[in-house]
């Protein structure tokens, strides 16, 4: 008997009836169930309800209003523009730091990681105010520039697109660095050695091997940052001007002070759909799992 079992099931023998917990679908389903239920009850259901009620009560009125009013189109454009600039800024600043993290020694790496994540302990509001101290008309940077005679008048650094992007980049940069670092750590360093020994200078090895291999991580990290940026409201409210009003700020005003829940819901749904569409497009071209450190395809 033992011998026949070792040789595996013969083609004619019926498939063995496995105990419930050994079936392939069982473990994932059981493990995911709490999360799924939580998501359905506290996330998907309320949103579905909100959309449904909105459509029932007021039809497409909210959506029509949003897409026909200049002010919301401007807010969409602001949000898109700020999010794109923030993403690019984070990438440009974060990529070299993330790359440096992969080449330095362990102790320096730990130190940089602590420094990178340190601002996270600070409140958004405090961080935004510190920009006022730096960028204001009487701020540190302008005082130095005027003091040195480089400029006659203080530069308008605060309460504009520049300061909003600077503030948002500061908040999101750690996430960008950590996401890129995670992706870069998975690149086999020996590939760089292989490139160098076969004739590539450090720079060419980086350009032809490391950089292309890091792109998947770059796309993932950028998506993450872009989507996070779409939902910002404290930073643009504190160190931006009304010209940089972002979607979430408008949603808050509509929902909390104007009590216009129809428009607020419509605006939220537009933001949500835009985010989902982006994510789906991304997933079609790249493997979304990479964001969470899944296997490279």
């Amino acid at each position: 008997m033992a011998g026949s079992q070792d040789s595996g099931p013969s083609p004619t023998s019926p498939a063995p009836v496995l105990p419930l917990f050994q079936r392939s679908w069982f473990a994932p389903t059981v493990l995911l169930a709490p999360t799924l239920l939580w998501l359905i009850f506290f996330y998907i259901a309320p949103i579905a309800l909100m959309v449904w009620r909105g459509l029932m009560d007021t039809g497409l009125q909210g959506y029509i209003k949003i897409f026909s009013s200049d002010i919301y189109l401007k807010v969409f454009w602001n949000t898109l523009q700020i999010s794109i600039i923030t993403t690019i800024g984070c990438l440009v600043l974060g990529y070299p730091i993330a790359f440096a993290l992969t080449v330095v020694g362990r102790r320096l790496q730990a130190l940089i990681l602590v420094l990178v994540t340190l601002p996270y302990w600070l409140d958004y509001v405090v961080r935004s105010y510190s920009w006022i101290v730096l960028l204001g008309r009487r701020g540190l940077i302008n005082n130095i520039l005027v003091g040195l005679g480089i400029v006659d008048q203080p530069l308008p650094l605060l309460f504009n697109l520049f300061s909003v992007c600077v503030g948002m980049i500061q908040v999101l940069l750690p996430i960008m660095i950590l996401a890129l670092f995670g992706a870069m750590s998975r690149i086999d360093r020996r590939l760089m050695l292989a490139a160098e020994i076969h004739g590539a200078s450090r720079w060419r090895a980086f350009r032809t091997v490391f950089f292309p291999l890091s792109l998947a991580g770059v796309y993932s990290a950028c998506l993450l940052i872009f989507i996070s940026a779409l939902g910002f409201f404290i930073v643009p409210a504190l160190i931006g001007s009304p010209r940089q009003t972002m979607i979430t700020q408008s949603i808050l005003v509509l929902a909390e002070t104007l009590l216009n829940w129809t428009d607020a819901a419509a605006l939220s749904i537009v933001l949500l759909v835009a985010t989902m569409v982006l994510t789906i497009i991304y997933d079609r071209f790249f493997n979304i799992d990479r964001l969470w450190g899944g296997d490279q395809r």
């Binding site: 086999d188 020996r190 590939l191 050695l193 292989a194 490139a195 020994i197 076969h198 091997v209 291999l213 490279q296």
Partner: peptide, 10 residues
């Protein structure tokens, strides 16, 4: 050079 891990460019 030939590496133990092959080190081919994926």
């Amino acid at each position: 050079m030939v590496f133990q891990s092959y080190a081919l460019f994926p």
